[in-house]
Nucleic acid binder design. Structure first.
Lengths: 340, 340
DNA sequence: CACGCATTTGCATACGAATGCAAGGGTCCG
DNA sequence: CGGACCCTTGCATTCGTATGCAAATGCGTG
């Protein structure tokens, strides 16, 4: 009772006294097979411990049933949470997820090759580092690409993002209403569309209000570098009193540096606002005012967009912005109450 | 210039004027092929945008080159970090990673079936929920299983863990030396070997020192539930002054609840210690004393153990404990200095 | 009982690449 | 110049499953 190899459909067929075709059909929902035959096959499969080989199936159906997800920034809680949600979404749709984590210094190209060789049916990109060139190659190989939380200039590839401009603008208005005067923006990566869009929304709103332009530092979406940026900010002759950060992760770095190294009380002396509303933001230690990018809906949209491309290869690029909302907590001074 | 299908080795062969075998050999390092032929093939492949179909290759080599990783608890920073590291490790070894995230309420069985059908060559389990039954089935299907951060009673399946008993014992001694008197343990899940081992190490050390046994509450590795547990703890008539938590994530919940809801100063009024040393633990806001489970080395050991099983199917179960070390920060009162 | 129709079944082939085998080509030596 | 030997090459087969097609079966009706 110790087969040297894994049992195949042929083995099952022999035991059940049917043909290999019957075994195949027994495992294909909706295939033409009698109840009796299906039962025979199921029993034989049970005793042999047979499981259909999805590799072989993929070869013949020309569908791997696999989605590639390239994701970086695993230290920013937003991404693991999204990964989790997307994974669940794809699983529910009958797809498996092949994970690629391009290391910080890593060259994206070998990864790209891996992804495409593996016949993934689509790729979800959630890593700023390898966006444009990567997306290019994929679409050239006829593999749909969905960018998550980033976009390219050319509207040629699908993307799901939050309302970065609008969210940042809302934050700017909130801070303006709060009576702040000296604004700062802590950028993410220079070549990140997300960081740029948020900056644009923030800066434009300040300008329209006729206020002093925001100081600008760069945190590179990295905790240590964001702390460095914060030090620059607070060491300046006239430090800011309202700091908008490219994302929550950056905001955590900034607010802790303000407290620990400059003795500033966040929410009183200065206001810090983030973007994402990761679970951490709600923790008492942070109580971060931020703009929520809802994980679940965004994951759903990513999955839906991907499936749309798979259903119709000619489907034009889908570019969606998922609604968010300002989450007011204690890290930023509140505007005075208008009524009552 | 718009091929309806992806180019195959045959297409490349035709263009290069060689046989399909030659194409295959051109992409197989160390295969018997002349420099000239390899170049011809490479050029043809380039112009056609050909990439070897790994699915087809897997079928014939009987090696999918894929490792399944089932991971839960993505809200605990420890797991995303490990996932990242393991992914990199497997990628470096030429393997791809198929990710499975069993939802909290999800039934593990369908996932298991998926994993095995997909011909993963091995499975890494980092989710307490589906440990024993799952591992059983996998080894029955001759798929090596490596448990990460958990183990089973029977020594039949490989596992990589930290030194839970020893680490917890060291923490106990540290807290005893710090002059604490009323100890508490915030457990993770009841059926988690990791939580049990840590509790054992902690409790045994207290007993050996002749101290009052630790109060015990259960946080289920969940932030909200851990906060609930902390409330129970601090509302007691004689609340503890030294709290050891099953992991850092739990410790964060406990220390924030202590501060925000009970006005306790962590590190002064009470001491809180965690286990894992996730990046968050070093943040100024937490400054958590904890026992480090080093991500990189652990990931390396997981990869190494997995590869060992793949290299030799008869390889006996590998059960390793990776050394850790106590990281003293500010969340727990220090023992008095002995010397100088 | 014969017939038509619907359902089930097996046969044979296909998916795309890897590989054992034998044939082809080249080199080197006697 | 012949032969031994090594390096290349193509042919044919193989992996495990899905599926078109035709044969076979079952069922209901006239």
């Amino acid at each position: 009772m110790k087969p040297s190899r894994r049992p195949t459909a042929h083995d099952v067929a022999a035991l059940a006294g049917v043909s290999q075709s019957a075994v195949s059909r027994a495992f294909t929902p909706g295939a033409s097979i009698s109840r009796r035959a299906r039962l025979l096959v199921q029993q034989a499969a049970e005793t042999l411990g047979y499981r259909p080989n999805l590799i072989a199936r993929s070869l013949i159906t020309r569908r791997s049933g696999t989605i590639g997800i390239a994701i970086g920034y695993m230290d920013n809680q937003f991404y693991p949470a999204m990964l989790d949600a997307m994974c669940a979404g794809f699983a529910a749709a009958g797809y498996r997820v092949l994970l690629f984590t391009p290391g910080p210094g890593g060259d994206p190209d070998p990864i790209l090759d891996e992804v495409l060789r593996y016949q993934v049916e689509a790729v979800v990109l959630a890593s700023a580092r390898l966006t444009s060139h990567f997306a290019e190659q994929c679409s050239q190989a006829r593999v749909p690409v969905v960018l998550f939380n980033r976009r390219t200039e050319r509207a040629t590839v699908s993307s799901i993002t939050g309302r970065n401009r609008e969210g940042a603008a809302e934050i700017a208005r909130f801070l303006i209403d709060g009576g702040h005067l000296r604004f700062a923006y802590v950028a993410g990566l220079e070549d990140s569309s997300t960081s740029r869009d948020r900056e644009r929304g923030f800066v434009d709103t300040l300008r329209q209000a006729g206020l002093t332009p925001a100081t600008r530092v760069v945190g590179h979406y990295d905790f240590a570098l964001a702390r460095e940026a914060a030090r620059t900010l607070f060491s300046a002759p006239s430090p800011p009193d309202a700091i908008f950060c490219a994302n929550d992760h950056t905001a955590f770095a900034v607010m802790q540096t303000a407290q620990a190294e400059f003795g500033l009380r966040v929410g009183t002396d200065i206001s810090v606002v983030g973007f994402d509303d990761v679970p951490l933001a709600a923790w008492p230690a942070f109580d971060l005012t931020t703009y929520a990018q809802p994980i679940r809906p965004m994951a759903e949209r990513v999955v839906a967009a991907t499936l749309a491309h798979l259903a119709d290869p000619l489907c034009p690029p889908i570019q969606e912005q998922v609604d968010g909302s300002l989450i007011v907590r204690g890290s930023a001074r509140l505007p005075p109450r208008r009524h009552s």
